[in-house]
Every structure is written in C-alpha cells, then in structure tokens.
Design a protein around this nucleic acid. Structure first.
Lengths: 197, 197
DNA sequence: CCTAAACTGGTACGGTCGTCCCAATTTTTG
DNA sequence: CAAAAATTGGGACGACCGTACCAGTTTAGG
C-alpha cells in the first residue's frame, strides 16, 4: 500500500456553501448519484482504501473537484456509500428470504459477490472507530434481525431470533473471509433452527 | 551507447541481504522484536492504518530504515504483527476459560481492551483480501474452536462446538463494533449452551 | 431579458507514504 | 590482527493523497 494522504488542518468556521444531499439541478443530482455509485463500486472492488477522490471522480467520468463539491469530505462520501451498501444488501436479503425461506439464507451469502460482502464487513468493523458509521452498522444489524424475526414470525427481541442471527452472521463472515468449503454451515444452521423451535 | 564502465562478470547474482526472521546478532534480534512490538502497539491503538514504517520506527526509538532492513515490506511487518496478536489473544482466552469456565468467556471480551480487539477484527476482515493474512485468520478461528472444544470436552469437529463458537464470535464482534449495552448477550450464550447439551 | 446562485473543472498546495540508496560503523569470521 | 559480513542511520525520490482555490459556465428566478 502506497501513498497516504495528508490532512492539513482546516481552521475555517465560516459557513462555506453547504452541500445539500439533494442538489437543486437535475444534472447535479445525477452527478452526485453517479459519484456515490462509483464509490460503492470501488468499495466493493478494493475495500475502502480504494475509495479516493481521484478514483471516484475518474470512475464516474467527472472532474476531481466534483467530489469535493458534492461531499464535504471523504468521510462523508464513505458514510453515504456504506449506508447505500447496507440498504441494498438488506433489501436483497429480505427478498431472498421471502422467496426461498430462511433455511436458504446462507445460500445467498455463498452465491453473492464476495468482494461486495467483504467491503460490507470491512466498513462494519471500521464503524467501531467512527460514530457516524457505527450508527449505520447498528442499522444493518437491526435490519438483519428484523428479516429473521419476520421469517420466524417472532418478535425481534426474542432471544431465539438473536441466536439465529448470531449464527448466521458469524458463518457469513467466516465464509467471506476464510473461504473454506462451507460443508458444515448448513448443518450448523439446522442445529440452530432446531434449538430455536 | 552510453559509456558505462565495464562491470562484466557476475552482476546478475542477487547479493541483496536476505531478511531472516531471526538475525544473527543479539542486538539485531532485540531490535527486530522491538519493531514488532511497536507494530502491535500501534495496531491496537489506531488500526492497521496507523502502522507505518515511520510510526513503528519512532515508537521503537529506531531509525526509519531499520523497518525496511528487518522486514522486506510493510505487508510482512503487518502479517507478523497480526500473527503475534492472534497468538497472544488465543493464549489469553485459553487462560481465562481455564480459570473462569466457558460461561464467562464473554466477560473477557467485555473487560479487555476494546481497541485491541477492534484491531484484531480489522485485520481478520482484511485477511479476506490477502492470502497470507487469510492463513493467520484461519489459525485464529481454529484456535478459538479448540478452546471451546477443550472446555466442553468434545471433539473440535462436533457441530455443537461450532455452534457455540459462532454465537460467541458474533456477539463478540457485535459488542466491539456497536458498543451497545450487552444485556442479552449472557442470555444468548446460555441459550446456545442449552442447545448444545 | 438579467443577475445571482449553482455548478464546473483545471490546477496547486502541503503532506505522508513505502521504499531505495549508501557512506559509516559494528560484529563476526578466518 | 585483518578482511568480510552484518548492521546502522540519515537523507532522498517518486507517488498519491485530501482538500483548497478560482476563473469560467450554466441554470434558476424574477
């Protein structure tokens, strides 16, 4: 890994032109969305180290300064990309479970894009050092728990739901990181399901 | 033709000093260990982004070039630091479980240095992108499973051992990252223990 | 239409980074 | 002891980084 960035102090306090999440002009909205999409792409490809202003701008075919115009800082860009990633992943999982049932929840993990999920977990852990990301991380956990609770027709606070979630998430992360043949994952999930009922 | 002075013979060999893991001279061994310890320190304090050649050298009170002399690259330094972190964490956990029993395994997580564990997980996820680190990540997982298997007096391959491990690791990571009041963690562990027996 | 605000994009700055280089020094070896 | 090898340490290089700057251009609103 080469070339880390300097972050010179910014003693400014004057209200610089505020960066609204939704610009007024339509092309500007499109551009902001394109930058965000590019950031998500880069995130899934190379981890959050790959999400630099220059890389994002180039990926979106926009000038470098567009990134600092639409996002006050790299941290904000990263946070929004994380949020988007979490939301889309939650939606995907919810759909999958609705279509194939809870027992197939791990199949989705196995089949889906590994790099994308790696990025997700990378940001999740990074959230332990950043309060803004931490909030999104909690949203993700809560969302996953909700999906399982719905599938089981149990309240989200039920310990059995939580137990199932811990099993699923741990197996998920382990599979994504260690890339071992997931032979016993299904058996483990069944064991947890049995313990739940 | 650029008139370079002739150095006709044997320039093709590689007389570059290989970096042995254990230098011959005693002070050199001490220095290498000091650098590694400094890397582990920095890792626990600021994540692996904080482990730079310069920071490591300064922490160990050694010149910058010492880092490139004893380690062929930053990646190698990082990998060795990760390995050391994993080994010491495994030893600590094993000790704790032997002294307080398996039901108290989560207590250690709650009480131990959060930053240290954050660094551990950070590297664990990073291992998903680096085969060298991936091997160490597997060693960690296997070590944790072994600790639980020993405590339960069951073979490591038993699905119940694996189920318990997934529960523990997921709760562990969630606590470290999200910092929520771990009210139900104990109840969950009991539920898993009950499912196991 | 006109003016202000929103937006664009090329460039520059200050900085940290990993790694290399090489003259000096220390330690081992013959 | 002398020669060879291992080690030291200071500095330099090139690459990127995040972000600021600002003269131009486009758009919105009256």
């Amino acid at each position: 890994m080469t070339g880390r960035a300097g972050r010179p102090a910014v003693p400014q306090e004057e209200p610089q032109p505020p960066q609204p999440a939704q610009p007024q002009q339509s092309r500007a909205r499109r551009r902001r969305a394109a930058l965000l999409a590019a950031a998500v792409d880069l995130l899934t490809e190379g981890g959050f180290a790959a999400v630099t202003h220059r890389a994002v701008a180039q990926r979106a075919a926009l000038p470098l300064a567009a990134t600092t115009y639409y996002f006050t800082s790299r941290d904000q860009l990263l946070a929004e990309a994380f949020g988007q990633l979490v939301d889309s992943e939650l939606a995907t999982t919810r759909h999958w479970v609705a279509a194939h049932g809870l027992r197939a929840i791990l199949e989705e993990v196995v089949e889906a894009d590994r790099m994308r999920q790696l990025a997700l977990w990378e940001l999740y852990v990074h959230a332990g050092r950043d309060p803004v990301l931490q909030q999104i991380a909690r949203r993700w956990t809560d969302g996953c728990v909700a999906v399982i609770a719905d599938a089981l027709e149990l309240p989200a606070a039920d310990p059995r739901v939580r137990l199932l979630y811990t099993t699923v998430s741990a197996l998920w992360l382990e599979h994504v990181v260690e890339q071992r043949p997931a032979g016993d994952a299904r058996a483990l999930l069944d064991l947890a399901l049995q313990a739940v009922s």
